[in-house]
């Protein structure tokens, strides 16, 4: 027997999810995913104290490997256009992959996932409908958006420097610390931005940054 389904759903907090969001339901599906669908209602006070009460029809597919794997979320009411932040299959692109990974680290239940990613995303869209801008900002699409995210993650303005940091995070600690710091200070990483690089490397692993480096380097992948 694989780890019991009951145990998995308990860890994911399925009962709590259904109790807190009375308009969401479990939807039977043909594969091993847990499918959740229905209306997600929320009331959010955003960064500038604007309060928005709204609801969206959504569908989540939570794979058995959750929370290591991020659920796919789609908006089924046809309100959010394809040109907004979506993946090719129409699912919502909630955040840059590295940010998702970082925040997923503390996310163990479906409710926590919805509240950390889905509601902020939907609130962001509602806010944008009303005010024309996104309350938390938006990333550009594709590779540029990833570089933009890494620049803010490493605290630099220059996207080329961000790329350098990603490369160093994909290397072993010692040689990385000896390399010149990508911020342009002229010092070695070990005497400059080493804290953030080492912290992220130990959190997400070198191979994660290697794959991200591929993703942001021109001509290397499909982004």
């Amino acid at each position: 027997m694989p780890p019991s389904i009951v145990e998995r759903y308990r860890r994911w907090g399925v009962d709590e999810l259904l109790a807190k969001y009375p308009d969401l339901r479990l939807v039977p599906c043909l594969d091993a995913d847990l499918k959740v669908g229905g209306e997600l209602r929320f009331n959010v006070r955003g960064p500038d104290d604007v309060v928005i009460e709204d609801s969206y029809h959504i569908e989540l597919r939570i794979p058995p490997s959750f929370p290591a794997t991020v659920p796919a979320v789609s908006e089924t009411g046809g309100r959010i256009p394809k040109t907004y932040h979506k993946l090719d299959d129409g699912s919502l692109c909630l955040a840059a992959p590295t940010e998702l990974r970082l925040r997923m680290g503390t996310t163990t239940t479906v409710t926590a996932f919805i509240e950390a990613f889905v509601i902020p995303y939907l609130f962001g869209y509602s806010y944008r409908e009303k005010h024309g801008v996104s309350p938390y900002g938006e990333l550009e699409h594709g590779r540029d958006g990833l570089r933009q995210h890494f620049a803010s993650l490493f605290g630099v303005a220059d996207r080329a420097a961000a790329q350098g940091f990603v490369r160093l995070a994909s290397m072993k600690k010692r040689p990385a610390n000896k390399a010149p710091c990508p911020c342009g200070s002229g010092r070695r990483l070990g005497q400059c931005h080493h804290t953030i690089v080492n912290e992220l490397r130990s959190k997400l692993g070198r191979s994660w940054f290697a794959s991200q480096y591929e993703a942001i380097s021109p001509g290397k992948s499909g982004y």
Partner: peptide, 18 residues
């Protein structure tokens, strides 16, 4: 009907896309 769950969200991930 019952009130929707309320949150204060001062900061959140920026949405991305491919």
């Amino acid at each position: 009907a019952r009130a929707a769950p309320a949150f204060y969200i001062p900061s959140a991930p920026r949405p991305w896309g491919r």
